[in-house]
């Protein structure tokens, strides 16, 4: 089990994330149909497939590269609201890893915290608004705690993935104020926000890449 993520770990992480979103595409779209306009899963899969093709043409010379390529792909091809926010999320991971040959738990905590700030700022979303922030925030808290406790990389990532999963599931109980559900209200209750679920899948893929 790795104590740092190498560029090839990160490539595996992002590819694994693309795979798991592809597998969950219909589920995510179904969740979005209850809360938004029903195109979330399709858009996400389309953008991530495009990112995978773009990554194939670029050598991961640093741990930031796969995230940078993914972020730029989202920002170049997604004109809605979720896509660009995910683009900026990946971009923050790309920035932290821009010049680094390996990704440590502290760097992952930093990227998550920066990404949280970015998405909250641009999306005007706070915890409890039933958005991706409801998965990001607990993951960030878990990562910072793991760094403070001196936890190992895998242990820290596991705690983040678990916190994001619980946070995403908790959105089932939330009424949207800012995100896509702000127009449909109570009819979305009972199913989680697809953006938050996608963030949980992102950290699950991180754990899998580090333990494979």
């Amino acid at each position: 089990m790795a104590e740092q993520l190498s560029p090839s770990h990160v490539e595996r992480w992002v590819h694994g994330f693309v795979d798991t979103v592809e597998e969950s595409g219909e589920y995510l779209t179904d969740l979005d149909r209850r809360s938004g306009d029903g195109d979330f899963g399709t858009n996400m899969v389309t953008a991530l497939r495009r990112a995978r093709r773009a990554m194939a043409g670029v050598e991961a010379t640093t741990v930031g590269v796969p995230f940078q390529v993914t972020g730029e792909t989202f920002l170049a091809h997604s004109g809605g609201t979720s896509g660009p926010l995910f683009g900026m999320w990946f971009r923050d991971f790309g920035k932290v890893g821009a010049d680094a040959g390996a990704l440590t738990l502290a760097m992952l905590a930093e990227a998550t915290e920066n990404g949280w700030a970015t998405v909250a700022r641009l999306g005007s979303a706070e915890v409890g608004d039933r958005t991706m922030v409801d998965a990001i925030a607990p993951a960030s808290v878990a990562l910072n705690k793991a760094v403070g406790d001196g936890s190992g990389l895998v242990e820290g990532l596991r705690s983040a993935a678990e916190a994001a999963r619980v946070g995403a599931e908790g959105t089932s109980e939330l009424l949207g104020r800012r995100g896509r559900t702000s127009y449909v209200g109570e009819s979305a209750l009972g199913s989680p926000d697809p953006g938050a679920v996608t963030i949980a899948l992102f950290y699950r893929a991180a754990v899998e890449s580090a333990t494979a």
Partner: peptide, 12 residues
């Protein structure tokens, strides 16, 4: 220009 009735992308 974006698609019909849709925002352009940030990279554009």
């Amino acid at each position: 220009p974006g698609a019909v009735f849709a925002s352009p992308t940030a990279v554009q």
